[in-house]
Design a protein around this nucleic acid. Structure first.
Lengths: 230, 230
DNA sequence: AAGACCAAAGTGGTATTACCAATGAAGGAT
DNA sequence: ATCCTTCATTGGTAATACCACTTTGGTCTT
């Protein structure tokens, strides 16, 4: 594991509590068996995640990351077992947010994506479908469909939002492999969405997407049993 | 300006083009007049933003950040003038996304926030209103209202999403100060939202929020003239 | 005795140096 | 011509020294 990930986990699991000072860099680097420059590089990464705060002359304090963290914390938070939280509730909400987020991407594509670019979406959909033998590969290719939509609209921020989501999403799938399953009506559902986008009908496109994704999620929950085991 | 911000801007403004290699660390650190460790700390930050990729023995390559970036890029992207993009269109979409994002927070609060926690929201709203003399302070206090909602629901990921949004939001307001204006019906509108949350009526809460926020945004656009000047 | 000032210790910030490890291209052997 | 070796280049890491800021505690002044 990378040094910064180890430190991150130490913080997320409570090994270093919010509000407390980390040991001095010289001490901590010895404890971890690394040089001080290496430790500092790791600390800079944690700083940009909102986990710690270094003050010249004073020390490096663990921030109240539940308050100050950024989305990038999500994959690690899930990997740490979401300490002190209801995992299945979180996952349920994240799936809901995923639906709305993709909905936004669709809306943007309806407004801004040129026809030529939309043509290529069909291709992406078929590509994902062709990988239905490997559920994880399918999921990633499916994700790429939405990234292609954002790309087609030439709207980088939407792409970045998806990028920030893909890492926790992938980790989630890897952690609960039984969840991964290729939906039956995939080609048809996505076909409807893309057709609606081509027709510049935002409501129909988003509607088709939401009914499809919600059916996938509810099927997923019924298979797992809501709130169970996860 | 911090070293990593300077490098970041150099990349976003095209000084270092995607796909190309950065100068070797030893060279670059001399060019920038800093030591190699300091440069490396900055590079690690850029790496976690999806901007560069260091490969041992090979070099540090500028990534295609429009493809690989994360949300955290947004404030810098806006500060760099969103090179090669339609600024007003981006802002328009971001405001839309903000509405939906806050809507999600409201939905989560409806489901999970205990009554006692919701009581405190009213207080936050009044606090924001009391700062209506200083529009920027008001905007930040208003933002805190939504953070309080996420906090009340004890749902850290929602808080993190807001955290990731606050920095570009603030930068946006500071860049276009004329935009900042305290809406007239603020107290009443937020009162309706909070009341609906208390009543556990998600649709009414989100509906009240959306109509309010959309009226604010459209008023904003009419003042500025859509697509103009920005 | 109380307050202000100052000095010293501890901390992060930075630069320098040296060396290790991985990469890739050039040159030599087959 | 092809493969393998070698070596220069590059990032990765460590150790050391020093600078700058913060805090703390003591001392001096009032």
């Amino acid at each position: 594991m990378q040094l910064h990930e180890q430190l991150l986990m130490d913080i997320l699991t409570g090994r270093h509590e919010p509000g407390t000072l980390l040991p001095p860099e010289r001490t901590l680097s010895q404890q971890l068996g690394v040089g001080r420059p290496a430790l500092r590089e790791a600390l800079r990464r944690l700083e940009s995640l909102g986990l710690v705060e270094s003050r010249h002359g004073s020390g490096t304090r663990v921030r109240n990351w539940q308050e100050t963290g950024t989305v990038e914390l999500l994959p690690y938070y899930l990997a740490a077992g979401a300490p002190g939280a209801d995992m299945s509730r979180i996952i349920r909400e994240l799936l809901q947010q995923r639906i709305r987020q993709i909905g936004d991407v669709v809306r943007i594509a309806v407004r801004y994506a040129p026809d030529e670019a939309i043509e290529q979406i069909d291709e992406q959909v078929r590509l994902a479908w062709s990988r239905r033998d490997d559920p994880l590969a399918f999921a990633m290719a499916d994700f790429d469909v939405y990234r292609s939509l954002a790309r087609a609209a030439a709207f980088p921020p939407a792409l970045w939002l998806l990028n920030s989501a893909i890492s926790p999403y992938r980790l989630f799938l890897e952690r609960f492999p039984t969840i991964v399953e290729v939906p039956e009506g995939y080609l048809e559902a996505m076909g409807r969405v893309v057709a609606a986008i081509k027709a510049r009908d935002a409501e129909r496109a988003v509607g088709a997407l939401e009914t499809y994704l919600e059916s996938v999620d509810s099927h997923l929950w019924s298979r797992l049993g809501i709130g169970e085991s996860l």
